[in-house]
Design a protein around this nucleic acid. Structure first.
Length: 492
DNA sequence: ATCGGCTCGCGCAA
DNA sequence: TGCGCGAAGCCGAT
């Protein structure tokens, strides 16, 4: 491997030096929560080899990140268990830190930094990580680098935002071979030269002990933590091992028909949450879905013997064009979760229709409790609460109807963000804000004829959705309980 | 099931 | 300035 981690992905966060007398190189794992196909970890290994120091992997989970709840904590803890096992196998010291109380973790990084030769962390757009890293960088007397490792397109490559997917596709397409030539090592821990193991310093162990195995394994509940217990655990396992299983199943059973079946219930990869928490790498997915063959992103109708046929192409367009369009947008517009960031034409047409009479007006609580007149909409909301996700197509309808039935477009946008952030496993992700933004016109075009409330914003109806999808089973699971019968599950 | 018409902002070539 | 083009739209006709 000649190149190593591409320079465009490595972002120095302070001017402090590397320290030859460090006891270890620290990888502060905050977004790419995996040990494979991970540029950040790979960079930490490079520095450890250069400084001839062992590697220490710190994976923390704070108690006070926005929307912290049993649901997200459990998913991340599943991931920590998988990473612990992978590090044990590789002979690398892994320190999982679970913050037992708000601010209990304060000082942990600074204390480790006093012993470190260098610190490497993850660079990710949106949410709180960049602010956290910037705050830490000021107090750290050793080099701190953030590595942009979760996209095929480096965040700093395009250098501008794109109004539409087509523009992004056209921009990326000719550069794709160049980007794909720079792939992270599948097994960066295998490239670690020294066999010496890092030791977590005693003062650190005393103040910030490793998370209990019972918590990682799920034998202990999360009731003692100061997080939101009303958003419950869902029966989806987080972590790199679970993600690998989902990916295998998807590639074997659903990728080939992805184009045609995409809107069917459960035809998707189901990897969105794992991508959000960094439990799987986009590079690995692309490598496996294409068998490392090139394809032309702009070619809609490839020859029938094309090595990357239509199903995989459609999936790759989701994974690269749409996912990275949103990541690129949030890189440049960190407050993409605010209404004011919608495109001008969309805000204008929504403003012109702000006083239109709504057929129904619901409060955020009505939406949250699935108390609308529309049983299909209620079902989608129940799926969000119980499973932390909404089926592909229904997710769009869910948003369009919140726009339709809210007192104002601004409050509709805020309701969508709040409910999705709170309940969706992949909430708080750039892609979530893309989806919500798309409901209100972002990355989309104006559509006629102009309609009440929506104006030129693309319109969707529950009636058409019921015709388009086979929903009997879905409504059986999530639909309104029959009058006089208590629901089996109240929903979390 | 599939089709055309509805309709329009954008980025780019000119 | 004109033109090609577009994540899932809807509606009515066949």
């Amino acid at each position: 491997m000649q190149g190593g981690v591409p320079g465009i992905r490595v972002v120095p966060r302070n001017d402090a030096p590397l320290r030859r007398d460090g006891e270890f190189v620290l990888y502060w794992m905050i977004a790419s929560r995996r040990t494979r196909w991970n540029f950040g970890l790979e960079r930490a290994v490079e520095l450890a080899n250069r400084l001839e120091q062992p590697l220490l992997v710190l994976e923390p989970l704070r108690a006070d990140y926005p929307w912290a709840s049993d649901r997200f904590h459990r998913f991340v803890l599943d991931g920590m268990r998988a990473n612990r096992d992978a590090c044990v196998r590789a002979g690398v010291t892994y320190h999982p830190y679970l913050e037992p109380a708000v601010d209990a973790g304060k000082g942990l990084l600074a204390s480790l930094a006093r012993h470190a030769g260098a610190i490497v962390t993850d660079d990710t757009p949106g949410f709180f990580q960049r602010r956290m890293v910037a705050a830490a960088a000021e107090r750290i007397p050793v080099r701190l680098e953030a590595v942009d490792g979760d996209g095929i397109v480096p965040l700093r490559a395009p250098g501008k935002v794109f109004a539409r997917a087509f523009d992004f596709r056209r921009h990326v397409s000719p550069r794709l071979p160049e980007f794909l030539a720079e792939t992270p090592l599948p097994d960066p821990l295998g490239a670690l030269a020294g066999k010496r193991r890092a030791r977590v310093p005693d003062d650190v162990l005393a103040a910030w002990p490793a998370a209990d195995d019972d918590l990682l394994e799920g034998r202990t509940g999360l009731g003692a933590l100061p997080i939101d217990h009303s958003v419950g655990v869902i029966p989806v396992t987080g972590g790199a091992r679970a993600a690998a299983g989902l990916l295998d199943t998807f590639l074997e059973e659903r990728l080939a028909d992805y184009g045609a079946e995409r809107n069917r219930i459960a035809a998707t990869s189901q990897l969105s949450a794992h991508l959000h928490f960094g439990h799987v790498s986009a590079h690995e997915i692309v490598a496996r879905a294409t068998a490392n063959r090139p394809w032309d992103m702009l070619d809609k109708e490839p020859a029938t013997d094309d090595p990357v046929p239509p199903g995989p192409r459609t999936f790759l367009d989701q994974l690269i064009t749409w996912r990275e369009l949103g990541r690129n947008y949030c890189h440049h517009v960190p407050d993409a979760d605010r209404y004011e960031t919608l495109p001008g034409w969309a805000r204008q047409t929504l403003a012109e229709h702000a006083r239109d009479e709504r057929p129904h007006v619901y409060s955020r609580a009505d939406f949250e409790e699935a108390r609308t007149h529309d049983s299909l909409w209620n079902a989608a909301q129940r799926q969000l609460r119980r499973e932390g996700r909404i089926e592909n197509y229904l997710r769009m309808l869910w948003g369009k109807k919140i726009l339709h039935w809210s007192a104002s477009p601004e409050s509709a946008f805020a309701t969508m963000v709040a409910l999705n952030d709170r309940y969706a496993l992949d909430g708080r992700d750039p892609n979530s804000y893309s989806g919500i933004g798309w409901v209100c016109g972002r990355f989309d075009r104006a559509w006629g004829p102009e309609r009440p409330v929506f104006g030129k914003i693309r319109y969707m109806t529950s009636a058409n959705t019921r015709r388009k999808l086979r929903l009997a089973e879905y409504l059986e699971r999530f639909g309104d309980p029959e009058p006089g019968r208590l629901p089996l599950e109240s929903g979390t």
